[in-house]
């Protein structure tokens, strides 16, 4: 029994060590406005409601940090005009 208790303790310790403060995964959404026909599917079905229409009715995003990366907009865009990608650190000034 003692051994078991010790083992449990050990596992608890390691699990406690393994848990760093969870960093939220960030995503970037790129809208290709030349191909977009402003159908409004991405705006209507976004679960976080962060995609908003601009003056011409085409989608834009003001707070990309709130994106949860469900890719609903990317999958349901009939015009291949949306790309959702994992955010990477920007290396150059002109990186999109």
């Amino acid at each position: 029994m003692k051994e078991k208790v010790e083992k449990q303790n050990v596992t608890e310790n390691t699990s406690a060590k393994k848990e760093p403060p969870k960093k939220k995964k960030l995503y970037d959404i790129a809208f290709y406005h030349d191909w977009c026909k402003a159908c409004g599917i991405c705006i209507a079905f976004c679960p976080k409601k962060i995609i908003t229409p601009d003056k011409s009715g085409k989608p834009m995003i003001e707070e990309p940090d709130k994106c949860i990366g469900c890719r609903f907009c990317e999958i349901h865009c009939p015009d291949f005009a949306i790309t959702v990608s994992d955010r990477r650190p920007k290396r150059r000034k002109d990186d999109v």
Partner: peptide, 12 residues
Amino acid sequence: PHVWCPGCGNGI
């Protein structure tokens, strides 16, 4: 963009 109407399911 392709010929289909805005929001057409064919693109999906």
